[in-house]
Simulated scan of single mutants.
Amino acid sequence: MRRSPRGISAVLVLVLVSTGVALPARTAEASRHVVSIAHARTLPPGTVVTVAGTATTPSGAFESSFFDRGFAIQDRTAGIYVSVPADPHVTPRDKVRVTGTLRDSYGLLVLVPADPAEVHVRGKGPEVRPVPLATGAVGEATEGLLARVTATVTRAPASDLPYGHKFFVDDGSGELTIFVNTGTGIDLTGLAVGRTVRVTGFSSQFDTHYEIDPRSPDDIVVRRP
């Protein structure tokens, strides 16, 4: 089995809000100050922060395994996944400002807004270019980024339904999981062992392993023999 619902963190936050648990006024006010995503990532889970960046994934693309309608954003320092239960209709290049609580979701650091109104979309920003990485370099330091690897398929796609499918690639630096969520519409036909592929996607983590989660069919390009 792939995983238990990541979205449980968002549900817990909503329960806390509905039962009247609130931040002290001074803490809430301080949380409205925008900090870099890199700085936010150094803070402990449970901290309320405000970050701003450009969306790198469409909202809801990973719903089949994340169990939410979230999206990722990135600034000049780092990236992070924003977990929300309802679709805010965020698309890549949207400029987004978010206030939320940092949570650990099966190894992945996520930001969970307490209210949909804490997600503010303000026009379009520059396109975020994926960071080229070696397969063995995808890890904690790259989590949250839009990344790209070019490597050889070492294990053909296998079903992990209803969550999605996964296959493995290696460029000689270490094997890496590529997890394809069912809602992305990606056709995995032709991804046989030995084929060279270029994969772009969200640098993610589940449990003890790291992975790249592509967003759409354009994110997987099979090189001709």
Rank of each mutant, 00 (worst) to 15 (best):
F71W: 00
A147M: 14
I80T: 00
V110D: 01
V49N: 10
V169H: 01
A25W: 05
V51A: 05
S64L: 09
P92N: 00
Y210L: 06
G60Q: 00
V222F: 06
L23K: 01
D160S: 07
R215M: 09
F67S: 14
D115A: 08
G20R: 07
G70N: 01
S59A: 13
S216I: 11
S203F: 07
L188R: 03
M1P: 12
R224L: 11
D207W: 10
R155V: 12
F71S: 01
G185I: 08
V138E: 13
L108Y: 15
E211N: 05
S18T: 15
I8G: 12
R198C: 12
S18R: 06
V149M: 05
T154L: 01
V82M: 00
L161A: 05
F179Y: 07
S105C: 11
G164Y: 02
V149W: 03
V119H: 02
G20D: 09
V128Q: 06
M1K: 15
R195V: 07
D213L: 01
G123F: 13
T77C: 03
V112T: 03
V82G: 02
H39Q: 10
G183Q: 12
I178C: 08
P92R: 03
R148C: 06
T56D: 06
T184N: 13
A52K: 09
G194D: 11
I37H: 05
R41I: 13
I178A: 10
L146P: 07
